[in-house]
Design a protein around this nucleic acid. Structure first.
Length: 492
RNA sequence: GCACCGGUGGCGAAGUGGCUAACGCGCUGGUCUGCAAAACCAGUAUUCGCGGGUUCAAUUCCCGCCCGGUGCUCCA
């Protein structure tokens, strides 16, 4: 199937295909590991995950590189504040980042590259630029990229810098560089800052150079796709293009994928608005990892998603319904005759699912197709017309769905427990929802004992006692369901 | 201020120059139940921010306005 995706560079929806016919070589800007990731960060990583999962569903391979920025101004500042070297400061946040990705079922890229482990590649790239006068050194020993040397500058973000590129020199004294727009490739150390001794002199890399160097090292001078949040378009990605193409004299990335920012409760997310949430904040409030994933991927990546707690609750319900259906299809009684109408609805759901994703990753339409199948399937099961042959067909579509959405398998309880353990270690139990805290002291055995007591009460028609036990458990977030074959319960 | 994107039912949203405007959640009713819960079924926008225009026909195209968001000195 032809996969069509919006390309920021051309401003149009275009076919995405691997240059070599089978492997998509892609680079996605990763995190700066100075703090815990927030839901805005994760929307981007999740949408890239949806893309790579879909590419693989379509039979392509992926060679996906993600960088870890483990040296930059914020890290240096925070590490200094904590009184530790940056090499001791960043690993815990990098680890936390990957734990969060695990909780969100984000597949790990084939290659994860740390900036601090690729200094020689960056130095080599800067030297190549310097050799052709695209880079220059300033008084203090820093190196800058000369934007005037790259006429195409601005082609990604559609900005016109021709006025500057004309060679008109801006005030040199103020910036100590030739043009105000020129950006740092290599920063000389200020009073005792951490630095590397290199052929360029002592210093540390600028932010943009790490991505250029690592992308090229693992993917070659030109590759298929480059991804990131919309804010990175300018200047970060523009600068990557300038550096890389100046050095290689070929196209850097052919396709550029940018994920839109989200709103939280209708407002832009910011610490001052009080609507800034990390993944862990939400888990401790009692929201499930799967619901967070579902909400963040269900709105197509170019739309401005409004992230709300009501939406989170809605997705929890939607996932329950899907999981219940999945289970029901596997265990429902069947008849020998194929339900032809259901078979054709199943086939259509499978087709629409892939077509929607192939059409610029329309996740909303894709999941709608699956819910259509859920309704049709349930109706057939209610009517007792589910054919034995219908079952594998439906399961195949669900499997297809889940290879991209990854929400059918229930790992929610373990991730919530993980977050609770983390909160305890960090002394953050005060941030945990009371319901979750109450549940912590409630072992499965205790719950079972209470349920037995309730069943006994019901048997003697002592409904007042039975309901009292049910209410007590409900207050602690334990939901009871009386089924024909016995009592089931779950942690809400 | 300049540039770009969006404004669809109670909420999140898909979509299209003309077919009953998807889907999820919620809500209402029903089946089931001691009552619930869960599950299932049914119903739930004469209408797509506001005003004008183009057209046989606009939510869908154009113009203006209002509102939200993003970028314009490294926030996904």
């Amino acid at each position: 199937m032809t996969i069509r995706l919006f390309n920021t560079l051309s401003g149009r929806v275009e076919e995405l295909s691997p240059a070599d016919g089978r492997t998509i070589r892609m680079y996605a800007c990763g995190p700066t590991v100075y703090d815990y990731g927030h839901i805005g960060n994760f929307r981007t990583f999740l949408q890239v995950d949806v893309l790579r999962r879909f590419l693989r569903l379509e039979g392509l391979e992926t060679r996906h590189v993600m960088n870890i920025t483990d040296v930059d101004d914020k890290i240096i500042r925070n590490a200094a504040g904590a009184g530790v070297p940056i090499g001791e400061y960043t690993p815990r946040y990098e680890q936390a980042f990957f734990e969060d990705l695990d909780a969100l079922e984000v597949e790990k890229p084939e290659i994860v590259a740390r900036a601090t482990e690729h200094i020689p590649s960056m130095v080599a790239l800067i030297e190549r630029l310097a050799a052709q006068d695209s880079a220059y050194r300033t008084e203090d020993g820093s190196w800058y990229f000369r934007i005037a040397s790259f006429p195409a500058y601005g082609k990604l973000s559609k900005k016109d810098f021709s006025g500057i590129a004309d060679g008109a020199r801006v005030d040199v004294d103020e910036y100590d560089k030739d043009s105000a727009r020129d950006f740092a490739l290599w920063k000389s150390p200020k009073d005792g800052e951490y630095h590397w001794q290199t052929e360029l002199g002592p210093g540390r890399p600028g932010w943009h150079i790490e991505c250029s160097a690592m992308a090229t090292e693992y993917l070659g001078d030109d590759f298929d796709l480059h991804a990131g949040g919309e804010d990175l378009m300018f200047p970060h990605h523009e600068n990557e293009i300038a550096q890389s193409e100046s050095a290689s004299h070929t196209t850097f990335a052919r396709h550029w994928f940018h994920v839109r920012f989200l709103l939280v409760e209708g407002r832009k997310m910011s610490k001052s608005e009080g609507n800034f949430y990390t993944l862990r904040d939400l888990l401790l409030k009692g929201y499930k990892a799967s619901a967070i994933r579902m909400l963040l991927i269900s709105v197509p990546y170019r739309q401005q998603l409004n992230f709300t707690f009501e939406g989170l609750a809605a997705e929890t319900g939607a996932i329950d319904r899907l999981r219940t259906f999945h289970q029901r299809v596997r265990t429902a009684p069947t008849v020998s005759a194929l339900n032809a109408e259901l078979a054709s609805e199943t086939a259509r759901a499978g087709e629409v699912f892939c077509e929607a994703l192939a059409n610029d990753l329309n996740t909303a339409e894709a999941r709608a197709a699956v819910f259509d199948l859920v309704r049709a399937g349930n109706a057939a099961m209610d009517a007792g017309t589910l054919g034995a042959e219908n079952v594998p067909q439906i399961l195949e579509v669900l499997s297809r769905f889940d290879r991209v959405f990854a929400v059918l398998e229930d790992h929610d309880v373990e991730w919530t427990r993980f977050a609770l353990d983390w909160a305890e270690r960090e002394g953050r139990l005060d941030q945990v929802a009371p319901e979750l805290l109450a549940q912590r002291d409630l072992s499965d055995e205790k719950i079972q004992a209470l349920l037995d007591k309730r069943t006994q009460a019901k048997r003697t028609r002592n409904f007042a006692l039975a309901d009292q036990i049910r209410n007590e458990l409900a207050e602690k977030g334990i939901v009871i369901e009386d089924w024909k074959d016995g009592v089931r319960w779950k942690r809400k």
